[in-house]
C-alpha cells in the first residue's frame, strides 16, 4: 500500500513538473519564433527590394532557410500562391497563418501584426514595400523584447510552480 502511494505521488510530481516545464518552454519558444520571423522578413525584404523576385519564388527561397513551424507557414503560403487558387496574396497569407498558428507559440498580438503585414505584402511598389518591411521589423522587434521580458519573468516561475504544485498535490492526496 505504501509502495503504491509513493509511486502515485512520484507520478503526480512528474506530471505537474512536466506541465510546468511545457508552460515555461512556450515563453522561450515564442522568443525563438519571433527571432526567426524577423530573420525571414529580412531575407524576404532582400529578395523583394534588391532582386525584385516574384513573391511565390521569394517566399519559397526564404522558407528553405527556416525550420519548424515558421518554415511550414512560409512553405504553405508559397504553395498557396503557386497553386493560383483564386485567392489574393493577402487571403493566401491569412489562410496559411490561420492554419499554422496553432503550431506556433506566438500570441494573438503577434498574429495580428502578421495578419496586417500580409494585407500589404506584394501589392505596391518597391519603395513602399521597403517601408512595410521596416515597420514589421520594428513591430516584431518590440514583440521580441516583450517576449524576452516575459520569458525571464515567468519561465522560472512556471518551472517552480510545476514542481511545487506537484509536491503540494501529492502531500494533500497522501
Amino acid at each position: 500500500m505504501v509502495f503504491v502511494k509513493i509511486l502515485s505521488s512520484l507520478v503526480i510530481v512528474m506530471c505537474c513538473s512536466f506541465l510546468g516545464l511545457q508552460a515555461a518552454n512556450a515563453y522561450a519558444l515564442r522568443v525563438k519564433e519571433l527571432r526567426m520571423l524577423r530573420m525571414a522578413f529580412a531575407q524576404l525584404e532582400s529578395e523583394v527590394i534588391n532582386y525584385a523576385t516574384f513573391l511565390p519564388e521569394a517566399v519559397e527561397r526564404v522558407a528553405a532557410l527556416l525550420h519548424g513551424g515558421v518554415k511550414e507557414f512560409f512553405c504553405d503560403f508559397s504553395r498557396r500562391l503557386q497553386k493560383r487558387s483564386g485567392d489574393t496574396a493577402a487571403e493566401a497569407w491569412e489562410k496559411a497563418l490561420n492554419c499554422w498558428k496553432k503550431h506556433l507559440h506566438i500570441t494573438m498580438e503577434d498574429t495580428q501584426i502578421l495578419l496586417t503585414f500580409g494585407k500589404v505584402l506584394g501589392v505596391s511598389d518597391r519603395e513602399s514595400q521597403q517601408r512595410y518591411f521596416q515597420i514589421i521589423q520594428s513591430q516584431l522587434g518590440n514583440q521580441e523584447q516583450k517576449a524576452e521580458e516575459a520569458c525571464l519573468k515567468y519561465q522560472t516561475m512556471y518551472k517552480n510552480l510545476g514542481v511545487l504544485g506537484g509536491l503540494a498535490l501529492a502531500i494533500i492526496l497522501l
Binding site: A52, L55, T88
Partner: peptide
C-alpha cells in the same frame, strides 16, 4: 479586377514597376 492584377503581376507589383 484586384485578382487579375495580382495574377498578372504574379502577386508582385514591386516586380512589374
Amino acid at each position: 479586377v484586384q485578382s487579375i492584377l495580382q495574377r498578372i503581376s504574379n502577386y508582385s507589383i514591386y516586380a512589374v514597376e
